[in-house]
Amino acid sequence: MGGVGGPEKFIVNGKRLDGRKLDELRPLMIKAGVIPNADGSAYLKMGSTEVLVSVYGPREVFPKHLTDPNKAILGCLYDMVSFSTSDRNRPGPSRRSTEISKVIRESLLPAIFLEKYPRTKIDVYIEIINANAGTRCAATTAASVALADAGIEMKGLVSSVAVGKIDGKLALDLFDAEDNFGQADVPLAYISRTDELTLLQMDGDLTSDELKKAIEMGKKACVRIAETQKAAITERFGKEAKK
């Protein structure tokens, strides 16, 4: 956000630099059940942003004193592989990845029936394998599919997307140049089935009217993303049933 040396114009002849319309998502592909070891897993590709998520659990809590007798606890770990960004990034947790792990966990929590799994822990492990903006959104969307793949009961799928502002206009699902040099970025997560917003962050400047419009734009996109998530789960369990 607000970096120097970005492109002069982000919108040329009504189209964005990657050829998309303002309210168009990048091509989205989701596959469930990609890691045989995990209880649930998903692979997601959104433009060139790629993420792998695996879910382990519900399983025994370790260390034991963290056990909640009334419900499951959710662990979430977001990590970028060191060759996923333009500059090589140091392995291990950073302040950024710690924040993102926390907000992803909190955006998934409201969807899960934790009280169904007392005294257990559900672990969500996220690896960003190629980063081109929108990694926290891609990770949230993929994590929700991985949780469904693990058979964790949820009240709906959590879908996530970012809405930004480029050349004074709202645009859906920013890619890296727009994210780095644009005017605003609003990642949000949404359970379309229950109409609940579970994540809303904002970086940059938006008027309150623009923010309202951005949220509406994001919610609409999340409904479309949820369709792709459902298709991935249907494909996975269609296959299972045939076995």
Partner: peptide
């Protein structure tokens, strides 16, 4: 470097 990330196995 090699990472045996928790993603890959319990």
């Amino acid at each position: 470097n090699a990472e045996l990330a928790p993603l890959a196995s319990a």
